[in-house]
Every structure is written in C-alpha cells, then in structure tokens.
Design a protein around this nucleic acid. Sequence first.
DNA 1: TGCCAGGCCCTCTTTAGGGCCTT
Length: 207
Amino acid sequence: METVAVIDFETTGLAPEEGARATEIAVVLMREGQIVDRFQSLMNARVRIPAFIEALTGITNAMIRQAPPVAEVMRQAADFIGDTPLIAHNAAFDRKFLDTELARVDRCRSQEFACTVLLSRRLYPKAPDHKLGTLVRYNGLPVAERAHRALADAEMTAHLLARIEADLKTRYELPEVRHELLRRIQKVSLANLDGCIQSFKRRMQIG
DNA sequence: TGCCAGGCCCTCTTTAGGGCCTT
C-alpha cells in the first residue's frame, strides 16, 4: 500500500525569496487513510519572527532561540520523508520553503507534490472557501485546538486528504486512490474532472 | 508616485485581470 507524506511549514513570512525562513516543520505519514507516523520540530534559523506572525502561530522568538538549528532539523526531516510522495495544503507555498531549506543543507527533493487546495476546489466546489479550517469544518472533520502550528495543520490536512480519497473512491467506484491520480485530478478543470477519472479508470482497467 | 509573493484558478479568457491560499 502507498504511503504519502503530508507536510506543513510555519515560517517568518510568505516568500523565501523575500528572506522568509522556516520556523517549524511537521510531516505526517499516511497509509490507507490512517496516520502511521509523525515528525515535528521547531527550528532556529537565527531570524526574527515579526510580531503579527508570533500572534498568528503562537511561535515566539523566545521559543525559536531554544530550538535546534534549522540545518539539523531539515536533515532529520529529509531523512524522515525520503522519497515518499508529498501532499500539502496550498502546496506551492510549502514546496518553495522545502526546496529552499533543503538547498541550504545541500539536499534536494526528488518527489512530486499534490495539493489539497486544488483537489478541494474540484471535489467541494460549493464549500464557502478553500481555507484549511473551512474545509475541515465543511467536511465535519476533527478541528485542531491550535491551528497555525505545523503538526496541527499537517494533521488537519491529513484528515482532509483521507476524506478526499474516500469521497473519490465512493463517487467513482475506485478500489484505491494513488498519488498519481491526485496529481492528474488537480491538473484538470472542474468541468473535465469526471472525464479525467473515467479515462484513468479505463487505462487502469478498473470497472 | 505607487507598488512591493507567487503560483494557480476562473472567466465577462487566451493580445488579461482579479481573486484565492499559504505565513
């Protein structure tokens, strides 16, 4: 059975090219819709966290000063993830921080990302919006006590992923939902979703 | 002076613009 890694970063800002750095990482391994392992750590990149981000995440400059060095944490995270296919909510954001922080420790990513924002826009077009918290509540999933912390957000994303996979299986009578199919789905328009999945089923000789 | 992320999606589109989503 396929294992996927759900990843979430907390950072000092929105863009590494603007000098933003990661302050916390969490990775949740999922297999058959269940969380089977977790990695989480704060990390010290020797940068100051803006006050409004301290308020948003609850991660303070005092906490970061006592955290292990970012290079040490990223090497551990890279070893934990290995070549497991990746998932994130708004994957473009986490992908660029992952790639930037890995490059700083002379490591690189080999696997692709799937994105629960793109998937949710296709599966749940009637949701009020596609923020992580909204989608979790919209689907009646467990809401983390402390959103905007990496492990809490990664676990909420993992639960959302499990719901997406379950809904795809039910709606399209699929025996399983692999990362490759998620990647295909997120690239087609909403109008072409049904056709994309039926075509995939024919190629896989399902149904 | 006025803007200041960026990748992606949607549509009153594609010779573009506006909005979403992440910290």
